[in-house]
C-alpha cells in the first residue's frame, strides 16, 4: 500500500508543479475542436435532435479522458529512457501492482482534470447537459482502460520514438473514429461493426447517452470494466519485462 501511495504521490507532486501548464495544455485541443467543428461549422447541423455542439461535448469528454489518461505513457517513457527515474521504482522493495496502480490512478486523475476543463469550456459555449453519476462512472472506466493500456505499452516499448508511433497509430485514429465527432450510424455497417470493438466507441456512447439524459447501455460499462481489467493485468506482467 505504501508503495502505491509513493508512486501516486510522486506523480501528484509533479502534476502540482506543472499545474498551470498542464491545465492549459488540456484546454487547447478541446477548444480548437469546439471552435472549428462546433462553433464555426456545426451551426447548421442537428443530430438526434441536438445541436452539434451538444453532440460534440460528450465526444470530447470521451476523447480527452482517453488521451489524457493514455498520456502518462509519455511521462513514464521520459522517466524511463531519459531521466532513468524508473530505476528508483525497480530498485525499491515494492510490488508490481503498487507501481501499476499508482501510475494508473495518476492517469485517471489527469483525465478527471481534463474533463473538468471541458465542462468549463462547455459552459462558456452555452451548452447545458446532464452530468450525472453514470457519466462519471463511464469517464472513470474509460480512463482506467487507457491508463492501464498506457502502462502496459510503456513497459514494452524500447524507445521514446516507438511510443509516439503507438500514439499515432492507435490513439489518434481511435480519437476520431470512436463515436466522438460523428454518429457511427452514418458509416457502412461493416465499419460500424469494426469500430464497435474499440473501447472508446462504447465509452462515448455511454457518456453521450447519460449527457442527453437517456439510459446508457449497461453492456458498455461491462465491456469497459472487462477491457480495463485485462489491460491492468497485462500491465502487471509487462513491468517485469522492463528489466533488461
Amino acid at each position: 500500500m505504501q508503495g502505491f501511495i509513493a508512486v501516486y504521490f510522486r506523480e501528484a507532486l509533479i502534476l502540482k508543479r506543472r499545474f498551470k501548464r498542464q491545465i492549459a495544455g488540456m484546454a487547447v485541443s478541446p477548444l480548437l475542436y469546439l471552435i472549428a467543428f462546433g462553433y464555426a461549422m456545426g451551426d447548421a447541423v442537428r443530430l438526434d435532435g441536438h445541436t452539434y455542439l451538444e453532440f460534440l461535448i460528450p465526444g470530447l469528454i470521451a476523447m480527452s479522458s482517453m488521451t489524457q489518461s493514455f498520456g502518462i505513457a509519455t511521462d513514464i517513457n521520459v522517466a524511463r529512457f531519459y531521466w532513468y527515474i524508473f530505476e528508483e521504482f525497480q530498485a525499491a522493495p515494492i510490488r508490481n501492482v503498487a507501481y501499476v496502480a499508482g501510475e494508473v490512478l495518476a492517469g485517471m486523475t489527469r483525465a478527471l482534470l481534463a474533463i473538468g476543463v471541458i465542462l468549463i469550456l462547455g459552459l462558456l459555449f452555452g451548452v447545458r447537459l446532464h452530468y450525472g453519476l453514470l457519466l462519471w462512472l463511464a469517464v472513470l472506466l474509460n480512463s482506467f482502460v487507457f491508463a492501464s493500456l498506457a502502462v502496459a505499452l510503456a513497459m514494452l516499448v524500447k524507445s521514446h520514438a516507438d511510443q509516439s508511433l503507438l500514439t499515432s497509430f492507435v490513439i489518434t485514429p481511435m480519437a476520431f473514429l470512436g463515436g466522438t465527432f460523428f454518429p457511427l450510424e452514418r458509416l457502412p455497417l461493416w465499419a460500424q461493426k469494426a469500430l464497435s470493438i474499440l473501447p472508446l466507441t462504447h465509452a462515448s456512447h455511454a457518456i453521450r447517452s447519460t449527457a442527453f439524459g437517456e439510459n446508457p447501455a449497461w453492456q458498455a460499462y461491462a465491456l469497459l470494466t472487462a477491457a480495463g481489467l485485462v489491460f491492468f493485468w497485462l500491465a502487471l506482467g509487462t513491468v517485469n519485462k522492463a528489466r533488461d
Binding site: 509513493a6 504521490f9 510522486r10 507532486l13 532513468y84 530505476e87 528508483e88 530498485a91
Partner: peptide, 29 residues
C-alpha cells in the same frame, strides 16, 4: 537490504531535494 547510487543521475529534476528523498522514503515504507 540495499541502497543504490546508479552511474547516471536519476533524480526527479522537477522536484526539490527534500521531495526526492521523501518519495524514496515512502518507497521503502
Amino acid at each position: 537490504q540495499c541502497g543504490l547510487v546508479p552511474q547516471h543521475v536519476n533524480l526527479d529534476s522537477e522536484l526539490t531535494v527534500g521531495e526526492n528523498l521523501d518519495i524514496h522514503g515512502r518507497l521503502f515504507g
